[in-house]
Structures are given as structure tokens and as C-alpha cells.
Amino acid sequence: MTEAVAALISSIAPADDLERAHLHEAAAWVARTADIYRRVKPATPPRHLVTYVVVTTPERDAVFLVDHRKAGKWLPPGGHVEPGEHPGNTARREAEEELGLRPELGAGSAPLFLTITTTVNVDSGHEDVSLWYVTTAAPDAEFTLDEEEFRGGRWWTRDEIAAADPALFDPHLSRFLAKLGR
């Protein structure tokens, strides 16, 4: 499966210098180890593969974010890639588990964005290599949120995100939105 992950990483066109650096580091990490899946919560190994599923409107003018209890941030839904699982299947599974949404994602799906982020508020710190997938839903879509994981969820417009405190969100969300808008 690491070959499939390496192929996904190489298929992403970087939007900026930071994404280019993250892509280079992620490719090197996958090439030097097969230990890319979290096996023990929260941080074994200390760097592991995750997916985000960014739900956007067809016009891409808003994204649905969840208020994540442990992270203390508004994030796209997502989660850890299980050993041997294709990240596209992880994204689909997480969208179903966390939102009740059945997106058109799977082993053939490609992510739009990649980031490497040190976690906050969850443990003493580990790194998530995050593949950001995109799907759409109507603004009036009804989601069934995982109440154990989230305090709530809502649509955020680009303007609302730009006007809010950046600390409320994943540190790479604004960069992702810039890439999504291209």
C-alpha cells in the first residue's frame, strides 16, 4: 500500500512553497519506512497518515467544518488511515462515520492537498501527514454528526473564515481554500 500512497503524493501539484516542502518530506518519509499507519493511540508511530474530507458547496463558496472536541478546533472531518487501507477509502469511511455522508470517494480518488502538521491539544505532539480530499454537498444537506467526537458542525463561508481568528482552524485551512479556489 505504501506504493499507492507514494503515487498519491506524487500526483499532487503543489500550490505553494510550503506544500512543495511537505510533499517532498512526505515522499521521502514513505520511501524510507512502511510504518505510516497509527497502531496505538494517540501517537505510535509518532508520524502517521490521515485524511481530511473537505465538504464544500458546488460553488465552492463554503466548507462544512466540525468543532472537534479533542483538537479544540474547527476542522474538516477525517481520520487515521488504517493499516492496508487506501486513503481514498479512508476518506469515504470517515465521511460516512462522522457525517452520515456517502461521498464519491474511494481507491481511485486523488487528494487535492497535503500537509504535515504537529497535533495540538490531543497529546504531547505527533505529526499527521494529511491528505485533503474534496467532495460536495448542497448547502441544505443534513449531516448526522458523531457527537462523541464533535461539539457541532456548520458551513463556513470563505469570508467568515478570513474574518475569524486563524487559531480556530487547522493551520493550513486558508492555504487549502486558496488552492481550492484556483
Score class of each variant (00 low, 15 high):
60 R>M: 15
163 A>Q: 06
67 D>V: 07
10 S>D: 15
148 E>G: 10
166 P>D: 09
28 A>V: 06
125 G>W: 08
173 L>F: 01
77 P>V: 11
34 A>L: 02
151 R>V: 04
26 A>H: 04
156 W>T: 00
145 L>F: 08
151 R>I: 02
162 A>W: 08
88 G>E: 05
112 L>R: 15
85 E>A: 02
156 W>C: 02
171 P>H: 15
119 T>H: 06
62 A>W: 01
182 R>F: 01
86 H>K: 09
18 L>C: 07
47 R>M: 13
52 Y>W: 15
107 A>D: 10
44 T>H: 14
41 K>L: 12
134 V>D: 00
45 P>L: 06
182 R>V: 08
8 L>Q: 08
53 V>H: 01
174 S>M: 08
156 W>A: 00
180 L>I: 13
39 R>P: 02
26 A>G: 12
79 G>Q: 07
19 E>P: 03
39 R>H: 11
40 V>H: 11
140 D>M: 10
30 V>W: 00
25 E>S: 11
141 A>Q: 09
87 P>G: 02
5 V>L: 10
167 A>G: 13
16 D>Y: 08
156 W>F: 15
102 R>F: 11
117 T>V: 15
170 D>G: 14
131 L>V: 07
56 T>M: 06
148 E>A: 06
108 G>C: 07
66 V>H: 00
90 T>S: 14
135 T>G: 03
55 V>W: 00
42 P>N: 14
46 P>S: 13
144 T>C: 06
65 L>E: 02
28 A>N: 08
98 E>N: 02
96 E>R: 14
48 H>R: 08
137 A>V: 04
44 T>S: 14
16 D>I: 06
89 N>I: 03
92 R>F: 04
119 T>G: 10
149 E>V: 13
123 D>F: 06
166 P>R: 12
9 I>Q: 00
7 A>M: 05
149 E>N: 08
70 K>F: 10
102 R>T: 11
115 T>R: 11
172 H>N: 13
68 H>N: 15
130 S>V: 12
82 E>T: 03
100 G>F: 05
172 H>S: 15
118 T>H: 11
53 V>I: 05
124 S>T: 13
91 A>F: 02
85 E>Q: 11
86 H>R: 07
4 A>H: 11
163 A>W: 01
116 I>Y: 08
138 A>R: 13
124 S>E: 15
4 A>P: 02
10 S>P: 03
58 P>T: 03
70 K>G: 09
132 W>C: 04
108 G>D: 12
182 R>N: 11
56 T>I: 04
127 E>W: 06
142 E>Q: 10
121 N>Q: 15
127 E>A: 09
117 T>M: 11
123 D>V: 06
136 T>F: 05
128 D>P: 00
1 M>Y: 07
98 E>C: 07
59 E>K: 10
22 H>S: 13
24 H>K: 13
5 V>F: 04
172 H>P: 00
133 Y>Q: 07
4 A>M: 04
120 V>Q: 15
43 A>W: 09
157 T>R: 10
18 L>D: 11
44 T>R: 14
48 H>D: 13
131 L>G: 05
19 E>G: 04
6 A>I: 07
79 G>F: 03
135 T>K: 03
73 K>L: 15
23 L>A: 04
